[in-house]
């Protein structure tokens, strides 16, 4: 830890709280659990998620199922690793990539004037693409970046087993 960081922390109690091991632990488990929950429907019903992917009209139809399967399992694996605290920074980075792809896809649909079911939690319906989803995803991106930067392995399996995240 650098002297500069120590100075900032001592000067700003909010920064101390937001970067504390306990708070980052909460963010880590929240983000991981959210993505595990999101992945369950998709992994169980890849056909349905393929329909949701095709609705965006971005990925070529030929590759839509492969992409859907990859996203679903990416969410599941990264989410489980985050909850457990194993390879934490890489798992958070994987989730950052996923969210970035969601933001790009939603932005493209807005620009093209399409409204589609977002498929955020599989093909469950009820959530259409729009600016609200982009704001939600940006919030999740900030959460992932905070985990990547500030995770200290609090209550993580990786730390208990002596591995670094």
């Amino acid at each position: 830890m650098t002297t500069e960081t120590q100075t900032i922390r001592s000067a700003n109690p909010l920064t101390v709280i937001l970067t504390s091991g306990g708070f980052i632990f909460v963010l880590r488990v929240f983000l991981g659990a959210l993505f595990v929950y999101s992945a369950i429907n998709k992994v169980g019903d890849p056909r349905g998620f393929g329909v949701a992917v095709r609705a965006y009209e971005i990925i070529p139809i030929a590759l839509s199922n492969l992409f859907a399967l990859s996203v679903a399992w990416g969410e599941l694996v990264a989410g489980v690793l985050l909850v457990l605290g194993v390879q934490t920074r890489k798992a958070a980075a994987a989730i950052l990539w996923l969210i970035l792809s969601f933001v790009i896809a939603i932005t493209i649909t807005i620009v093209r004037g399409l409204t589609v079911d977002c498929g955020c939690f599989g093909n469950e319906g009820g959530h259409s693409t729009g600016y609200g989803l982009i704001i939600r995803d940006l919030f999740l991106m900030v959460t992932a970046i905070m985990v990547i930067h500030f995770d200290r392995g609090t209550l993580s399996l990786g730390r208990l087993s002596g591995r670094k995240g």
Binding site: L66, L69, S70, W73, G74, L76, V77, A78, L81, Q87, R89, K90, A91, A92, A93, A94, I95, L96, W97, L98, I148
Partner: peptide, 13 residues
């Protein structure tokens, strides 16, 4: 970390 995350996504796929 970003590169590691990308590799993780490929493994998951």
């Amino acid at each position: 970390d970003l590169a590691g995350g990308f590799v993780l996504l490929i493994i998951a796929a």
